[in-house]
Design a binder for these strands. Sequence first.
DNA 1: CGTACTCCTTCAAGTAACTTGAGGTTCAAG
DNA 2: CTTGAACCTCAAGTTACTTGAAGGAGTACG
Lengths: 147, 147
Amino acid sequence: MNLHIRVFGIGALAKAAGVTTPTIRYYEEIGLLPPAPRTAGGQRTYDDDDLGRLTFIKQCRDFGFGIDQVRLLLDLSISTDRDCVETRDIAQRHLDEVREKLAELRLLERRLESFVTRCNAACAGGPGQDCVIFKDMAAPTKGGCCR
Amino acid sequence: MNLHIRVFGIGALAKAAGVTTPTIRYYEEIGLLPPAPRTAGGQRTYDDDDLGRLTFIKQCRDFGFGIDQVRLLLDLSISTDRDCVETRDIAQRHLDEVREKLAELRLLERRLESFVTRCNAACAGGPGQDCVIFKDMAAPTKGGCCR
DNA sequence: CGTACTCCTTCAAGTAACTTGAGGTTCAAG
DNA sequence: CTTGAACCTCAAGTTACTTGAAGGAGTACG
């Protein structure tokens, strides 16, 4: 049979999946992608299955999953005897992490905002060393400098 | 005079500033901190000025400024002939970056949330390979897998 | 069939910002 | 004087790739 098995080179695969060619070689090296079959001249060849797998990896990475988590997810995505609850748990844990990071960033945003505002109001244009930012920064008041 | 110049070791400095001792040595190595004076036996000694500088660095890092930006801020914080507007601009640019990152993370949060919810509703407990998460991930729909 | 041009190859090193480990020295207390 | 914590240097590891050098493979054109 073997109808319509598209075969393409590393560059085309890279473009299709939205990654760079060195990244693909790197994924092969660390075992996220299986070693690609080669042409007579030694160049890697790929098909649509590879594109599916690489796309999956790319999406996971965009979601912020680490390489080891992606490895785990790839295993789970193929397995027939492990259930989808595991996958959901990984996603849930990651979601929790994202929410923590969000909380941190929101705090950071407020602090930076306060910096900029106060700098404009209190010392705009004065000599660098008198800026309120530096007064705040040099004092070891853990996390409370901009209140 | 030299009244009350507290001198302490690297461990005490580390604890006071909330960093680790290897980090302090690293900062010295890359020139963020000046080479510390040594005891006869070769151990580093620090005073309150060092604590101020290191605290400043730590706060900047906590704010998400990169090492190079910290270097710049340290220069500005000492300079008498450059004004505080430069500092404010650096903070403003950083604030913009933080806001972008925030937007990305909020989107990510929604997508992950949708994942977990749909997995619970559609395929909870089924074989891993049938999980909606994998169906979504393997399709190269750029950024739209969870609507 | 030769040549030009792009795409591909491997291997090594660089990036950020530290952390970890090995193996040995110094300091302060008792 | 001995013990144990703290310190020293130097090298390598971490994450997830990126960048660069030097050269081979594939393809289109004349």
